[in-house]
């Protein structure tokens, strides 16, 4: 019986409310007002059963999610690419004796071309993730400069902070911290300042910090 209702066209559904012939003649020339009323009523009726709801929800996917025609550019890949398995050893990691290395001649020729020097197809590679990534290391700080930064840091660690020294000698913060240490009283002062800042944190911020630590641990375990 339900299928019969479904198969019945909308016009007959609207006419079913009126039984007489005159009424059906009226409905054939309905005003926009009555049509909207009928549509609203039928719309409500469509959600009254599962099959009607399913039928209403059966809409075609957005064209972005369909497989594009040949030669068309698209930004959504369907299906999306999966993360590569770690059990698939990259060509470069295969040992010299592995038969897969000899079998893959194209890769062999490519990698031997790489070893000869910076190859021409380096431009085809994706960009480095940060600006400093892959940049050659600068060994620009001399021994005298290291001695100088040590004396500066020793005489006034508040003025010559790690950031200031890094700016002055154009090296990384890590290098400054490797070279010179602040005195114990400066360390204690900094620690006190940090503790005071942490004491001002509310539950949300301190909880977020804890979460961040947990996420970091999960990251190194490869769990996320």
């Amino acid at each position: 019986m339900e299928t019969r209702h479904l198969l019945r066209p909308l016009s007959s559904l609207s006419s079913s409310t009126t039984t007489t012939a005159t009424a059906s003649a009226m409905s054939s020339s309905t005003s926009p007002f009555t049509r909207s009323i009928v549509a609203a009523a039928t719309g409500r009726r469509h959600q009254s059963t599962t099959s009607r709801t399913k039928k209403m929800l059966k809409i075609p996917p957005h064209p972005d999610f369909l497989t594009p025609r040949e030669g068309e550019s698209h930004i959504i890949y369907n299906p999306p690419s999966a993360a590569p398995s770690v059990y698939h050893t990259p060509f470069k990691f295969l040992p010299k004796t592995d038969p897969r290395r000899q079998a893959n001649l194209t890769q062999l020729i490519r990698s031997s071309a790489d070893l000869s020097g910076p190859s021409a197809n380096a431009n085809n590679l994706p960009p480095p993730s940060t600006k400093r990534e892959g940049a050659p290391k600068m060994y620009n700080v001399t021994r005298e400069q290291v001695d100088e930064m040590r004396t500066l840091r020793a005489e006034d660690p508040a003025k010559w902070s790690v950031q200031k020294l890094a700016e002055r000698y154009k090296c990384s913060h890590l290098f400054i911290m490797m070279c010179c240490k602040a005195g114990p009283e400066h360390k204690a002062q900094e620690r006190e300042r940090l503790e005071a800042i942490k004491a001002r944190w509310g539950p949300i911020r301190s909880g977020a910090r804890e979460e961040r630590k947990k996420r970091k641990a999960l990251l190194f375990k490869g769990a996320i």
Partner: peptide, 13 residues
Amino acid sequence: VGIYSGTDKLGEG
């Protein structure tokens, strides 16, 4: 992000 050595991709994350 992919890690590259030369032109070979070593890993992806």
